[in-house]
Structure formats: C-alpha cells, structure tokens
Amino acid sequence: MKKETSFSTKGQRADIGDLTIYRILANRYTDAVGPFVFLDHIVPKAHSSAMDSGTGAHPHRGIATLSYIIEGEGEHFDSAGNHAKVYSGGIQWMKAGNGILHDETLNVDSRTENNRTHAFQFWINLPAKNKAEKPEYLAVQSDEVPQKSLPNDSGWIKVIVGSYEDLNSNIPNYSAQFLYHIQVEAGKSFTISIAEKVEVAAFLPSTNSILNDVEFQVGEFIEFDRLAGEIMIENKSQEATDVILFGGEPYTEPIVAEGPFVMNSRSEIADAYRDFYAGKYGKINNQKGRV
C-alpha cells in the first residue's frame, strides 16, 4: 500500500551572506518529523570566487546539529576544541548536549575547480536524558558515507543517518532515526517501505519528482501519513532526480524551542540562556578571529 501525503509546503527565505537559504522545518504545518526539528536548505549556487559565508560563533543546547555538504567545503570550530573541514559529500555532526559554542562556514571546495555550494543543516532533537551529556563532534568525509546502488541500475542511496539494509551510518543514534539521500536515474523508479507509526518526510532539492503517483515541485517538503506503507519515487524526466528522505520514531517528550536551544520545558530554556550568558559554554579560539 502506498502512503498518503499529509501535506506539502515550501520554505521561507533565510539568507546568510552570499548563501541563498530556505528554511524548510519548522513550518506552518509541523514542528518536527521524528527527532528532526529544523532543516535549512542552502540551495545550489555558483560563486565567482572563494567566499567566507558562515554563521558566526553561536550557542546550542539540547540538540545535535548535522550539516550535509553536497557541494563545497564546510569548516567547523567549537568551544570544546574541535576543528575540521569536510568536503563535497561529507557530513559534520555535533552533539550540543549541555551546551557548546560553534562556528560553521561554507565555501567552495578548495580541492577542486567546482565553484558551487549546496548543503543542508538539520537539528536532531535529543532525548531528555541525553540533553545533559557532554558535547561531541564527528566529521565524516564523503568516502566514509555508506552508499549502494539501487536495483535495476535505478540510481543510488546514501545513508547519512541511521541504516538501510546492510548500510549503517557512523552518526550516533539516540532514537530510531534515518536520513537518506536517494538519486533515481532518468526513466527509473525506486520504492522504499516505511514501518507503522514512523514519521517520514521528503524534500526535493534539485528537480521535480513523482512520489506515489503525484508530481511535486523542486523545493517542496512533503510529509506522509504514519501508516505502514511504501513511497515510490518515479523519474519520468530526462535527468537524474534527487530526494532527501528523513524521519524516525515520534518524539514523545515535550518540545520547547527558543533561538538556538531545544529543551523540554520553559525553565530549561531559561537555564540554557543563563548558562550561556554566564560563559559556561566556553570560548572558541580560531585563526579567523570569531570568538
């Protein structure tokens, strides 16, 4: 049985510097899909020269951030002393836990002549018991991301978070969760089964796609019902199509979000701000002077 669409929508502009960004989640219909409570799409864009577009140093608490760099070069600094770069196809994951400062920049890939950037940033809500844990950081390069070909030469699937068949991501799981990048070749199709009660949504970053017999437009976010069923991706165009598919088990604890903090109560939000202003999240020291 094919899953039914609950709703579809498009994001709101939230540009930073030279980057064109659409905020996809939260939206007017939902605040979360499984543990995912935030999604920004940094749309594909060519740049005439190297740039320095970043968020600047800022705090987080109660979540894990995940940046998936499809094209470009992502650089990370944080107040726990972590620093790394990931390149096209790589992932940066940071568990904010009980509080951290970080700074991320997105630039063109210095290893290649490709002058384009394209990326996603997700926030993954942590269970209450994990919100008080110490921060952690993990950089995953493109060749470390699990990937396999789809049947009948239909395309490929990358497992950014969670697992699919025999593929398992290196990103830690604190609840049942998944994040897949699926590419379906022209004239091909691919069907994936979703279990009962799992929350799941799709996003179309680059082209129109047909999902369960309905054509959706590039830039659309589509959420499906929670009954067990299938999602069929059909590509009737002349070029490959990409689908970002993500979700997981419902987050059953209270969600209170404000600014860069996602906690379980208003008092915990107040604590997060108080500890930040008291300097308890530490300090970033890096060569770019963002402190």
Rank of each mutant, 00 (worst) to 15 (best):
Y180M: 08
H58L: 03
V218E: 15
V198P: 01
E144H: 03
A139C: 03
I182S: 14
A84E: 09
A80R: 13
F246P: 08
N286G: 04
S209W: 07
K10H: 03
Q217K: 15
M94V: 07
A84C: 07
F77T: 01
T105C: 12
W156R: 00
E215K: 12
I222W: 02
F122P: 12
A14F: 04
I21Q: 04
A128C: 02
D15V: 05
Q141R: 00
K158T: 06
Y273W: 14
F190V: 02
V198A: 09
P127Y: 11
F224W: 08
Y180K: 01
A132Y: 02
E71C: 02
D103V: 11
V140H: 04
S79C: 08
T252L: 14
G282M: 13
N208Y: 02
A80N: 08
V214S: 14
V243L: 11
K280G: 04
F120P: 11
L106A: 12
D40I: 09
N208R: 10
T55L: 13
E258R: 11
A186K: 09
Y68L: 06
I182Q: 06
D40P: 09
E104P: 13
D31M: 09
A195T: 05
T30M: 06
Q92H: 09
A272Y: 13
I63A: 02
V140C: 05
I171N: 00
S88Q: 03
R290D: 07
G89Q: 07
F203W: 07
A176S: 10
P127L: 10
I100S: 09
L101N: 14
Y68R: 00
S142H: 11
G56A: 12
I69M: 09
I284S: 06
Y22W: 06
E199K: 08
F224R: 10
P59C: 07
N173K: 13
A240P: 07
A139M: 01
F190D: 03
S149T: 09
A240G: 15
A257V: 11
D143R: 14
N173E: 15
Y68F: 14
E71R: 13
E71I: 00
I194H: 10
P151T: 06
E230N: 14
E258K: 14
Y137S: 07
K3G: 04
T20N: 12
P205Y: 05
G259S: 10
E215A: 13
A195R: 11
K95A: 07
V256I: 14
N152V: 09
V43E: 09
R28I: 04
G89I: 06
S149A: 13
I16L: 07
T9M: 00
Q183F: 02
G162A: 03
T30D: 01
D52C: 06
G248C: 10
E258H: 14
L126D: 07
F246W: 05
S53Y: 00
Y22H: 12
K10S: 11
I160F: 07
D275F: 03
D225R: 04
V159F: 00
P44N: 12
V214P: 05
A139R: 02
